[in-house]
Nucleic acid binder design. Structure first.
Lengths: 124, 124
DNA sequence: CTGAATCCTGAACGATACTG
DNA sequence: CAGTATCGTTCAGGATTCAG
């Protein structure tokens, strides 16, 4: 992911390609990326995800998992037991997104201090 | 003033990475990433950005540019002319984020078709 | 041209209760 | 345990207006 050749996004993201934009909106949001990130570690149950993804509500988690499942990024496995057991894991394409997501997480870690001081400077 | 109107956040406080989480929230959103992406091409004026970032409102563009400027990812250059002229460009750390952002854009394009069919399958 | 401020509506979100 | 539904609140975000 070094200086990748500037892809001609003009045609894909900027123009009237509402689908690409919609997909982008689906994944470029806080919870979706955090879920992808957490699921990158291992397969997890709903309740586990609830704990791992700090601060997410039951509803938001469900909602985002549905969207990710619909987009084919997360696989949902239901075990017909009592009580119910549902496991989530990344699909192959989902793993690809994880890589991109990792880049952002790594960047955040690396620039943590810089941003913090930049904010302090700006707020004066 | 949109700064942290949150009250409890017990979980967040317990974790040392609440700042990282906040930074993550700043950049893991549709407009911020699109702006970074567009500014990756070249320095631009406010009005140019308005056209390039398809669908962004005047207000949202201003708001997001302020956040990015505060985080030190975008530099804002004001030319004291009449009429005013303001140019925006990525800073060095901002360029780093651009790389990560590119990964997501590239991924979106590569999985465009897959996601589209995955949705069709899910919606039945 | 840039951008701040105000108003207002619809979407996001949390809490709660209920089902299988 | 996992998921859905409803309700009430908060807030994001669009339109508009005014200022520099």
């Amino acid at each position: 992911m070094v200086t990748t050749p500037r892809v001609p996004k003009d045609a894909d993201l900027r123009r009237a390609d509402s689908l690409a934009r919609e997909i982008f909106s689906d994944i470029a949001n806080k919870w979706a990326l955090l879920i992808i990130d957490v699921l990158g570690k291992r397969t997890m149950r709903f309740s586990e995800l609830r704990k791992e993804v700090e601060g997410v509500s039951h509803k938001m988690l469900t909602q985002n998992l549905r969207t990710l499942e619909r987009d084919g990024l997360v696989h949902r496995e239901v075990y017909p037991t009592v009580p119910p057991r549902v496991e989530y894991r990344l699909t192959e394409p989902g793993l690809g997104l994880l890589t991109a997501c990792d880049a952002i997480c790594a960047w955040t870690q690396q620039n943590y201090t810089y941003i913090n001081s930049a904010r302090a400077r700006f707020d004066t």
